[in-house]
């Protein structure tokens, strides 16, 4: 058990290292150096001095090592021009993005699970076919389309909710926080519902064919309890893994949605950093996303073995 988890953990560390190194290497490949970007009208000496100053003339691996050392000590670097600390930007923007993704994930599962369970139970019925067709259409609806539709109608036309949001931190004013978050969350949630619901439904249909469901029925357990206590848990393993891996899609979605609504989250900051060629900042953002993603999936792995005792056992044997 311990050994498998250690192996898994090492693997995750490896993923983070490789990903950050690749992005680091990419920053070195790009045309137009950051120095000319920072002081476009500087003299050759000034540029050389700044290059020296930023350590840009050292070999890539040395720069990477330096960055990594700082990163591990909690120093995420500075913006080239404003000298603003990346740490402070992360401190304000990461919670916003996390909140957005957390809500989206929560509501997507909250809606998808009952839908998946009930449609599986009534597979083939009108209700099932209707829900399924709706979800199939939702799969084809990119989140930016939802975001724009909301911005056009709810935001601009009917003016029900504020668009250009200036998210109020939740502890300061929960209600304001929610009104600003509502549209981004909906935009991010809809597509996920479809993914989760359809996967859970097909797994549930398979589980409901299992012998142990008949056993439960033969015990006189009510249908509702069979669905939720007997069938859901063994059916939720794929869902769980997908929900974990989906954090990647969620991050991508958050970047788009934050940009459409102007939510000051990490996604918005990343695109800003990319456009402004703020590589040290970008490097740290990418690393944080990689760590976030990898941590979620590590947690899912652990949860996996909680949900399925067979895996727990197999692993402890291995």
């Amino acid at each position: 058990m311990l050994r498998t988890f250690t192996l898994k953990f090492l693997r995750l560390v490896l993923v983070v290292l490789v990903v950050t190194f690749i992005t680091f290497g990419l920053t070195k490949l790009q045309p137009g150096d950051p120095v000319s970007k920072i002081i476009p009208f500087g003299t050759a000496q000034q540029k050389a001095a700044l290059t020296q100053d930023l350590g840009l003339n050292e070999p890539v691996y040395q720069q990477y090592g330096k960055w990594l050392g700082n990163f591990l000590q909690g120093d995420f670097g500075k913006y080239y021009d404003s000298k603003q600390s990346v740490n402070t930007v992360i401190k304000t923007s990461l919670p916003v993005s996390l909140e957005l993704m957390l809500y989206a994930q929560f509501f997507a599962l909250l809606i998808a699970i009952p839908l998946g369970v009930t449609t599986a139970y009534r597979a083939g019925s009108k209700y099932d076919r209707g829900a399924n067709a709706t979800m199939f259409a939702l799969l084809a609806l990119p989140n930016f389309v939802v975001a724009l539709l909301l911005a056009i109608y709810v935001g601009a036309k009917w003016q029900l909710l504020p668009t250009q949001s200036n998210v109020i931190p939740f502890p300061l004013n929960p209600l304001d926080n929610w009104t600003y978050m509502l549209m981004p969350v909906v935009a991010l949630t809809l597509g996920q519902i479809a993914v989760y619901m359809r996967l859970l439904r097909s797994d549930m249909i398979a589980t409901l064919q299992e012998d142990f469901i008949t056993t439960a029925k033969a015990k006189g357990i009510p249908t509702r309890r069979i669905l939720w206590r007997h069938a859901l848990r063994p059916s939720s393993l794929t869902l769980l893994t997908v929900a974990g891996l989906n954090v990647g899609a969620l991050i991508g979605g958050a970047i788009v949605v934050e940009n459409v609504f102007g939510v000051p989250g990490l996604g918005k900051r990343i695109t800003e950093a990319i456009l402004a060629k703020q590589y040290p900042a970008l490097q740290s953002y990418v690393a944080i996303i990689a760590i976030l993603y990898v941590t979620v999936n590590f947690a899912i792995d652990i949860l996996y073995s909680v949900l399925d005792p067979r895996i727990r056992n197999a692993r402890s044997v291995a």
Binding site: D211, T214, K217, A218, K219, H230, R310
Partner: peptide
């Protein structure tokens, strides 16, 4: 029927490998 199942009449199934809930 659920009032009868398990209470008045019960069944032992063929394959005990698949008839018990694996995660309970």
């Amino acid at each position: 029927m659920a009032q009868y199942w398990g209470d008045q009449m019960a069944m032992v199934f063929q394959d005990p490998m698949t008839s018990l809930n694996p995660v309970m």
